[in-house]
């Protein structure tokens, strides 16, 4: 699943550790999500959405084309 986490983080000039601390996850988890190796749970996705004040679908893209 693609996501804009790295961009949103860069806009705030946050390191991965900074974002990890704000989300209560490890830096490795942030890295895994950013690189698309790990899809966060729904609670974590909501937490990310709240942190960046954006709906989940604005941050995560499941690449569903509507077919």
């Amino acid at each position: 699943m693609k996501n804009r986490l790295k961009v949103l983080r860069a806009e705030r000039d946050w390191s991965q550790a900074e974002l990890a601390g704000r989300l209560d996850v490890s830096r490795q988890a942030v890295n895994a999500i950013e690189t698309g190796k790990y899809d966060p749970s729904l609670p974590l996705a909501f937490k990310i959405g709240r942190l960046f004040s954006q709906p989940i679908e604005e941050i995560f893209d499941d690449e569903f084309d509507g077919e």
């Binding site: 946050w14 550790a17 900074e18 974002l19 990890a20 601390g21 704000r22 830096r27």
Partner: peptide, 9 residues
């Protein structure tokens, strides 16, 4: 704030 929490963790 996040960095501090990450370090504490």
């Amino acid at each position: 704030y996040g960095e501090e929490k990450e370090k504490a963790s």
